[in-house]
């Protein structure tokens, strides 16, 4: 389905699907080691992490966020994103459902060792916070000329 809609961008999602299959296979071999700082499934906000030769991109799916209420820090290869999304309950109404997350959040992501903590860039668009951390120049794969 993604293939047909965004052919240029399908690769990442193919990759997710492949990972999902792999995880399903791994489920048969429980327990497998989880990242020591990883959060339980269902933690808010959901994140996706993708890597390129230039850097690592972290996507936080956090709709209705005030970008000023988000703090991003990188220490060596640990990225911490914390903040709050407050949804004040309306007075004098009847609630049927309250499924949307309201409150504080914090997620810690272990990045590859070769990232440069000084080159971090963050954008917020349509409810997705995208954080790009570049790799150190020396760590980039280089093509060696054969003379």
């Amino acid at each position: 389905m993604f293939e047909s809609l965004f052919s240029g961008e399908s690769r990442l999602f193919d990759e997710f699907r492949r990972m999902e299959r792999q995880m399903d296979e791994m489920l048969g071999r429980w327990p497998w080691p989880a990242g020591i700082r990883s959060a339980a499934r269902g933690a808010y906000p959901p994140i996706n992490v993708g890597a390129t030769a230039d850097g690592v991109d972290i996507y936080l799916f956090a709709a209705g966020l005030d970008p000023k209420a988000v703090e991003i820090s990188v220490q060596q290869n640990l990225l911490t994103v914390s903040g709050s999304r407050q949804i004040p309950a309306k007075e004098g109404v009847d609630y049927y459902r309250q499924e949307r997350y309201s409150g504080e959040f914090r997620r810690v992501i272990t990045l590859p060792d070769d990232v440069d903590p000084d080159r971090v860039d963050a954008r917020y668009r349509d409810g997705v916070l995208q954080i790009t951390v570049k790799r150190r120049e020396t760590a980039k794969p280089r093509r060696i000329e054969v003379k």
């Binding site: 997710f16 959901p46 996706n48 993708g50 390129t52």
Partner: peptide, 22 residues
């Protein structure tokens, strides 16, 4: 709705909580 996120060329997934865009 269909989510669209900006992704650089040649990206590999390291981790994914969100596995659909629909």
């Amino acid at each position: 709705g269909e989510a669209k996120i900006q992704m650089p060329e040649g990206m590999n997934a390291l981790y994914a909580d969100v596995r659909s865009t629909r």
